[in-house]
Simulated assay, not measured.
Amino acid sequence: MDHPNPILTPTKQPQIRVITLGLIKTSTHLLVSSGYDSVKQQVFHRALGGGVEFGEAGQDALRREFQEEIQAELTNIQYLGCIENRFVHEGKPGHELVLLYQCDLADPQLYQQEVISGYEGDQMLTAHWVEIERFKSGELLLVPQECLQFL
C-alpha cells in the first residue's frame, strides 16, 4: 500500500491575504457594502476593494476592483496606511494585510445615488452610503474596525 510522503506532499496552509480598500466619503457618509456572518449572526460593513494580485501595485488593484465591482473610476487616491486584520468569519480564521486608501469617485452623480449596484465575481454587490456617525457610535459594525480612525 503506497502512502504519500508527508515531506513531499504539499499541504494547504492558511495564507495571509493582501487586499486594498478605498474609503470614499462625503462630510457625513461612507460608501460601504454589507455582509452577514451566519455563525455570529452579525451584519457587518466594509469599504469597497479587494485582493491585490501578484506584481500589482496596491493603488492599481484599488482602481481595478472599483472598475470590476461598480464600473467606477477613482480620483484623488491617497495612501492612508496598512492595517493588519486578523478575524474570524463564518467560523474560520482569516488574516489580511489591508492597504487603505482615501479616494473619490470620478463621477459626481454616484454621490447622489442611494445604492450603487455591481458584481463581485458572479455575486451581486450592493454599495450604499451609510452615516459615519453610526459606525463611530457602535450602532453599526465597520470592518476592519481600525478604519474608524481614518473617518
Score class of each variant (00 low, 15 high):
A106H: 11
V39D: 01
E56W: 04
V18S: 10
F87C: 07
L23I: 14
I77P: 13
E84W: 12
P10W: 01
E69A: 06
A106S: 12
V52F: 03
T11E: 15
I70R: 07
H128V: 00
Q112R: 12
Q42N: 02
G91S: 10
F135V: 03
L23Q: 12
T126E: 15
A72P: 05
G94F: 10
Q149E: 15
P10Y: 00
G58K: 06
Y79S: 10
M1H: 15
A106Q: 14
S117Y: 07
N85G: 03
S38W: 09
F87H: 14
L148W: 10
E53W: 11
D2P: 15
Y119H: 13
A57Q: 15
Q109Y: 15
V130L: 00
C103H: 11
P144W: 11
L105E: 10
C103T: 14
R46K: 13
K12G: 02
F44W: 15
K40V: 00
R134S: 12
D2M: 09
G55W: 10
L31M: 03
S27I: 03
A47W: 03
L8S: 00
C82L: 13
E139L: 04
G94N: 07
A127D: 01
E146Q: 15
H3A: 06
L110E: 12
D60Q: 14
T126F: 09
L74V: 03
T11S: 14
D122I: 07
R134G: 01
E69H: 12
C103V: 04
I70W: 13
F66V: 02
I24C: 04
L8Q: 00
S34F: 05
L110W: 13
H95Q: 09
V52H: 05
H95T: 00
T75C: 07
A61F: 11
R64H: 11
E73N: 08
A127H: 01
F54M: 05
D104Q: 13
